[in-house]
């Protein structure tokens, strides 16, 4: 485990109530794994007790943000702010429930002119929950 709970906040610019990543499990090369513990107070939990699909997209975006933050930290730079530029081929297979432990694999595929293309797969106990391709703009903090 690289970063857990409070420590992960050092890697991302988001703060409560919209923090959607609980830990950065490992990172090497262009790949990392993150986790999210789905709790009752999660911002994206709907009236039926399940998380909105958009919460998964935010979790994936913040996972990439944590990965980028980790890479910046390795170079002693502060965590950058990332904006979602595009979501493509997003599929949601089921909505997460309170108590679920989500695990996400992020792969940074390519980078050009400040735009990073990545792919992500989110699963829970080995079962696919969502997958997508996403582009993020990474804006270094000045």
């Amino acid at each position: 485990m690289l970063y857990e709970a409070e420590e992960v906040l050092g890697l991302i610019p988001q703060r409560e109530p919209v923090v959607m990543v609980s830990r950065l499990i490992d990172a090497s090369g262009n790949r990392c794994h993150t986790g999210l513990s789905v709790t009752a107070d999660n911002y994206f939990i709907e009236d039926d007790g399940l998380m909105a699909e958009t919460g998964l997209i935010e979790h994936i975006a913040q996972s990439a943000s944590a990965f980028a933050g980790h890479r910046y930290r390795m170079q002693s730079l502060p965590a950058p702010i990332g904006y979602i530029g595009e979501v493509r081929k997003f599929h949601c297979y089921r909505r997460p429930a309170i108590g679920d432990e989500l695990q996400t694999e992020i792969i940074f595929e390519a980078e050009a002119e400040g735009v990073t293309l990545m792919s992500a797969t989110t699963s829970c106990n080995g079962e696919a929950v969502a997958d997508t391709k996403m582009k993020i703009f990474v804006e270094p903090v000045r």
Partner: peptide, 11 residues
């Protein structure tokens, strides 16, 4: 409605 698929969303 359940968001089953987003083919493309540009921000």
């Amino acid at each position: 409605l359940f968001i089953e698929e987003i083919k493309q969303c540009r921000l």
